[in-house]
Design a protein around this nucleic acid. Structure first.
Length: 269
DNA sequence: ACTATTTCCTGGATGC
DNA sequence: TGCATCCAGGAAATAG
């Protein structure tokens, strides 16, 4: 399940591999569900366009396209959802089940979008603007202000993409453990000191995860098919009943707003 | 304006 | 072995 570090890893890999290439033709699957823009619009926008760069914004992958007319959409946006993958491969490579889009590149390779669970989304847009703030760029003061007066659990607030873009279930749990805050605490109940610590630990955990290429659980791999290694550093996520890496207390699992949440009852207050 | 709940979707794990 | 059921979760839609 790609969150900020995984999407960052994928976007960096794609930038190295396809920046400068030209999209010669576009094939879109018959199922329209993954498309936010119309199939015709996506096809028209991508065909014959040069890919200038590939980067991450929140959990979205942004392909900057060379635009001839200033009023045309000039970005291709991909959200990988839960199981989405972007693969660069040779045209001879067998088409994977659940392939929803194939872009033929001038270099002779293909860029394929595969997504079994179909939670991913494709769109073209003029200029993409993320809903929330970038966790790695938000200032401590702005971070603290985001949670002022919010009654929702801090875990839910961290997952709210309109506040911060890019945090998912894994890194919300991991950041809360490192900050010593229980996931069910109301966001507004956190002290200034706790929020400052949360901001610092969130930045720390995201940067370390990016350094290790993300967390490979389920079927996540980067654009080279390589797995990440941050799952080895998980302190609470997916570790129900196992000893806390800090104090040996068994990790608890609870459900908050339908999401599994893991924490150490001793380290987190 | 917020917050909570439901819905979408498939494959892997589990239970009988 | 096979079949049914449950579960994972990002974000949009819906309800309160």
């Amino acid at each position: 399940m790609p969150e900020l570090p995984e999407v960052e890893t994928i976007a960096r890999g794609l930038a190295i591999r396809v920046a400068g290439d030209v999209i010669e033709s576009v094939w879109l699957g018959s199922k329209p569900e993954p498309l936010k823009s119309s199939a015709a619009e996506i096809e028209a926008t991508l065909t014959s366009k040069k890919i200038l760069n590939v980067r991450r914004s929140g959990k979205h992958i942004v392909f900057d396209l060379e635009s001839s007319a200033a009023d045309n959409p000039a970005q291709w946006i991909v959200h990988l959802g839960m199981t989405g993958r972007l693969l660069v491969c040779s045209p001879q490579t067998e088409l994977a089940k659940h392939t929803h889009a194939v872009l033929r590149l001038a270099s002779g390779r293909e860029l394929r979008f595969v997504d079994p669970r179909r939670f991913g989304r494709l769109a073209v847009i003029k200029v993409f603007s993320p809903a929330g703030m970038e966790p790695l760029q938000v200032s401590p003061a702005d971070f603290v202000a985001l949670f002022r007066g919010r009654k929702t659990p801090i875990k839910s607030a961290l997952l709210n993409q309109k506040l911060l873009s890019g945090i998912g279930n894994i890194y919300a749990d991991e950041a809360l453990h490192r900050a010593g805050v229980r996931p069910r605490r109301r966001a507004s109940s956190l002290t200034h000191h706790e929020l400052m610590r949360l901001h610092k630990e969130l930045n720390r955990v995201l940067k370390e995860a990016i350094r290790l290429g993300g967390s490979s659980i389920s079927d996540y791999v980067d654009s080279d098919g390589e797995e990440g290694f941050f799952q080895l550093k998980h302190r609470v996520y997916g570790r129900e009943g196992e000893p806390c890496r800090v104090c040996k207390t068994p990790i608890k699992r609870i459900v908050i707003a339908g999401r599994s949440s893991h924490y150490c009852p001793k380290c987190q207050k």
